[in-house]
């Protein structure tokens, strides 16, 4: 009887069924645990929400000032925070987005507005200066380079995230 080989005995049938149900229950219990375990990873992805600022093809080697707003929550108070970035390509074609907040005491620096020091960022408050790539000029008050925004290019658009200090001077 060739049929017999494909038949399942009662014992096998019960084994398979119980294993299936048991496995399903175990998975049901484990899934939330795994979710908890890797939660920090998932959250980080969500926290790094980036904002569409401009088209990549419009970026030149000359820094341009762009403003954008990010949603912030301070306790129970939700508000939009206005941010400024100076965006350009460096000599290697890498996109750089600088935060114009002076690292000395937090004034807003401007690009190339001081005739005495062309092609530098200049702070109106205490004369702090930075090179085009945001490195503080020695002998001026700022203690460190301008912070840089995280950048991401997607579908020809530039997205900016958090600003990060660069260390060194």
């Amino acid at each position: 009887m060739s049929n017999k080989e494909h038949d399942v005995t009662r014992r096998q049938f019960l084994n398979y069924t119980l294993m299936g149900v048991g496995g399903f229950m175990a998975a049901g219990m484990l899934a939330p645990m795994v979710r908890f375990a890797i939660d920090p990873l998932l959250r980080e992805e969500k926290g790094g929400k980036m904002v569409d600022v401009m088209a990549v093809k419009d970026i030149t080697t000359e820094p341009v000032r762009k403003t954008f707003s990010v949603d912030r929550v301070d306790g129970w108070h939700k508000f939009k925070e206005e941010k400024i970035a100076y965006i350009f390509k460096d000599d290697n074609g890498k996109i750089i987005a600088l935060s114009p907040v002076c690292t000395h005491l937090g004034c807003t620096v401007a690009w190339n507005d001081d005739p005495a020091h062309p092609n530098q960022f200049h702070c109106p408050c205490h004369g702090g200066r930075y090179t085009k790539t945001g490195i503080n000029v020695p002998g001026t008050p700022p203690p460190e380079p301008l912070h840089v925004y995280e950048t991401k290019v997607k579908n020809g658009r530039l997205y900016l995230g958090e600003e990060k200090p660069r260390g060194g001077a």
């Binding site: 907040v101 002076c102 937090g106 004034c107 807003t108 109106p124």
Partner: peptide, 8 residues
């Protein structure tokens, strides 16, 4: 104030 934060 935002623009001149460090001196004002």
């Amino acid at each position: 104030e935002r623009e001149l934060h460090g001196r004002v």
